[in-house]
Design a protein around this nucleic acid. Structure first.
Ligand SMILES: [Mn+2]
Ligand SMILES: [Mn+2]
Ligand SMILES: [Zn+2]
Ligand SMILES: [Zn+2]
Lengths: 145, 145
DNA sequence: TTTGAAATTGATCATTATTTTCATTTCTCA
DNA sequence: TGAGAAATGAAAATAATGATCAATTTCAAA
C-alpha cells in the first residue's frame, strides 16, 4: 500500500530530525506510483510533470533517503545507471535482464536463496545483501538477431 | 598455465589483425602473474614497476582486449571500480564480498547454477552470463564492529 | 635490410554519472 | 511570527572511463 510506504518514510525522516517538504512529497509519490526500475533521470522526468521546479540533485538526494529508509532499493545493473525500485518490507527478488530489449524479469527462488546461505555458512560468512542477475535473451528476443 | 593464456591472447590479437607490442606484453604478463581482482589502477601501478613508460590508457585498452579474448573477465562489484581477474577457459565462480575488510571469497556451486538455469528456462530466457554476489561479513570480521 | 601503411601509444581532452558547494528559500516550533 | 536548522537548485567539483591525435612502433612486402 502506497500510504504505508509514505508513512514509513515519514517516520524515517522524523527519526533523523529531517523535514517534510513539498519536493520530497512530490518525488516520493511519483516514485511509489511508478513501477519498474527507475533511473534518477527517469524519475526526474516524471516528477517534473507534477512539479517543474524540482531539481536533479533533489531527486538524487531523495532517492538516497528512500534507500536508507528501506522503502527503495538500489540496483546496479550493467548499464552504468543506478536504478531504484520500491519493495514491500521483507520482500526480495532477483533479476533476469534481456541484453537485447532491456526487459527485466523478476523472480524469487527460495531454493537458490537457501543454497546461497549454505555456501556462505560454509565459509563462515554472514550475508547482509546479495544480488543475482542473469543476462541473456528473453523469450521475445530469443528468435531474432 | 600462464604461457597458454599468453598464446590464447596472441591468437586473438592475430585473428583481429592487431599487433604485438612491448606494452601489451608487459601488461599481460603482469596481469597473469597477479592474483586477485585488479582495478585498472592496481594493474597500472604494478606494470609501471616493470615498464615505467606504460600509460594509463593503454592499460585500459589492453584489459578490454583481454576481456574480449576471454583471458580476463570484468567484474562490477559495488564499489564503482571495474575489476578484472583471469580465468582458465570454461572456469566460472561467484563471490562473497566482505563489506568490512574488502576480502573476496570465490565459490562455485553447481546446484545453484542448475537452479538458475531452471528459473531461466521457466521464463523462456536464454542466459548468456550471470553474476551472484553476496555482501556481508567474512569470518574474520564477524566478531567485530 | 629498407620502407611505408596501419596499428599503437601516451598525453590530454571529453564525457557522463554522481556528489558537493553555497547562496537563497522553506520548515519547524517555541 | 521569527530565528535557527534544514532543504533546495544551479552550478561547480569529482571520478571513472572513453575518445582524440600527433608521434612512435610494428611488420610484411619489396
Ligand atoms: Mn526488481
Ligand atoms: Mn573472482
Ligand atoms: Zn528481450
Ligand atoms: Zn572481512
Amino acid at each position: 500500500m502506497v500510504q504505508e510506504r509514505i508513512n514509513e518514510f515519514a517516520k524515517y525522516i522524523e527519526k533523523k530530525g529531517l523535514k517534510t517538504t513539498q519536493q520530497r512529497n512530490d518525488i516520493i509519490r511519483t516514485f511509489l506510483k511508478s513501477g519498474g526500475h527507475l533511473s534518477v533521470d527517469d524519475l526526474h522526468q516524471k516528477v517534473k510533470k507534477v512539479n517543474p521546479r524540482v531539481g536533479y540533485a533533489t531527486v538524487y538526494r531523495t532517492l538516497k533517503l528512500l534507500s536508507e529508509s528501506g522503502v527503495a532499493v538500489e540496483r546496479h545493473f550493467d548499464d552504468g545507471h543506478t536504478r531504484y525500485e520500491h519493495l514491500e518490507p521483507e520482500e526480495h527478488h532477483d533479476h533476469l535482464i534481456c541484453i537485447k530489449c532491456g526487459d527485466i524479469i523478476e523472480f524469487e527462488d527460495k531454493n537458490i536463496e537457501s543454497l546461497q546461505e549454505k555456501v556462505a555458512k560454509k565459509h563462515g560468512f554472514r550475508v547482509v545483501t546479495h544480488n543475482l542477475e542473469m543476462y541473456g535473451y528473453c523469450k521475445k528476443c530469443n528468435g531474432n538477431t
